[in-house]
């Protein structure tokens, strides 16, 4: 008989239990985190087509739209992943706070990286950003952009989602350029992307540890890969609003 079947004493503290064990909760954080990182990278790669011009980006957008139900499945899956990641993050951080009900008079850390201390905060900002981002581009709730009227030289407001290119495709390129010409929008995107990079700096390497995919021989490499992912996402995503805002990209663009 295995002797490990004795009844366990009940919890002696007021710490709220999780729906799964703390280890499994972290597995799910890591797995969903990994999927979200993958999404972020693919999303960024698609967006970087902005540098290849209007045709490339709009073509890519058309390809995505053309996927039909597949797109909706992917969107649904992504939403689910996102909700699990956020939901568990809230549950875990609540539990972690309860696990230390009284703090120290002198708080000091030795090894914790700066980003690792602010995962909940950066995560919350990213959440807020994602909501704004969806409202901005996908749902078109914030969809009025100022456009220079070629005739009068004055500014008129246009609906972003109504823009089309010469081939009649949805003009995603135009949306990006016009939106990021507005410094307020660009700066808020830049800020959000920097925080995302911080979040990934810890998350992208930490997920390996949580999943037990760790080995003393590869730990340094994993750290570097995590940092590299953070830097790539940060640089890639910041570059777009920055270059457009500064007029380095899409300067001559004029919507139809």
């Amino acid at each position: 008989m295995s002797t490990m079947t004795a009844p366990r004493p009940a919890a002696r503290t007021n710490v709220a239990p999780l729906p799964v064990s703390t280890l499994a909760a972290k597995y799910w954080m890591a797995i969903t985190g990994l999927l979200l990182v993958a999404f972020v990278l693919v999303h960024m790669a698609g967006n970087l087509l902005v540098y290849r011009g209007q045709d490339a980006l709009n073509g890519y957008a058309k390809f995505l739209k053309g996927m039909g139900p597949m797109l909706w499945i992917a969107r649904g899956g992504l939403l689910l992943v996102f909700l699990v990641h956020i939901g568990l993050a809230f549950r875990l951080s609540r539990r972690n706070r309860q696990a230390r009900p009284i703090g120290y008079q002198v708080e000091r850390t030795l090894r914790a990286s700066l980003p690792s201390k602010y995962m909940l905060l950066t995560g919350l900002v990213i959440l807020a950003f994602v909501i704004f981002h969806l409202a901005h581009y996908t749902l078109g709730i914030v969809h009025q952009v100022p456009v220079k009227d070629p005739q009068t030289g004055g500014e008129v407001m246009r609906d972003m989602l109504s823009l089309h290119d010469q081939q009649g495709r949805h003009d995603v390129y135009g949306m990006v350029i016009l939106a990021f010409r507005q410094p307020v929008i660009s700066l808020s995107y830049i800020l959000a992307q920097l925080l995302l990079a911080l979040h990934l700096y810890h998350g992208a390497s930490s997920m390996f540890q949580s999943l037990g995919l760790n080995h003393s021989r590869y730990n340094a490499l994993i750290q570097k890969v995590g940092a590299a992912v953070a830097v790539i996402v940060g640089v890639g995503n910041v570059s777009m609003p920055l270059t457009i805002m500064l007029g380095l990209v899409g300067q001559g663009y004029q919507p139809l």
């Binding site: 710490v15 064990s21 703390t22 875990l92 309860q98 030795l110 690792s116």
Partner: peptide
Amino acid sequence: VYQMDAEGFGACTNQAECEA
């Protein structure tokens, strides 16, 4: 692990403060 959870300890956030 189940007992550890039942005792009310928190989860790991991979900061390595314990190792330090």
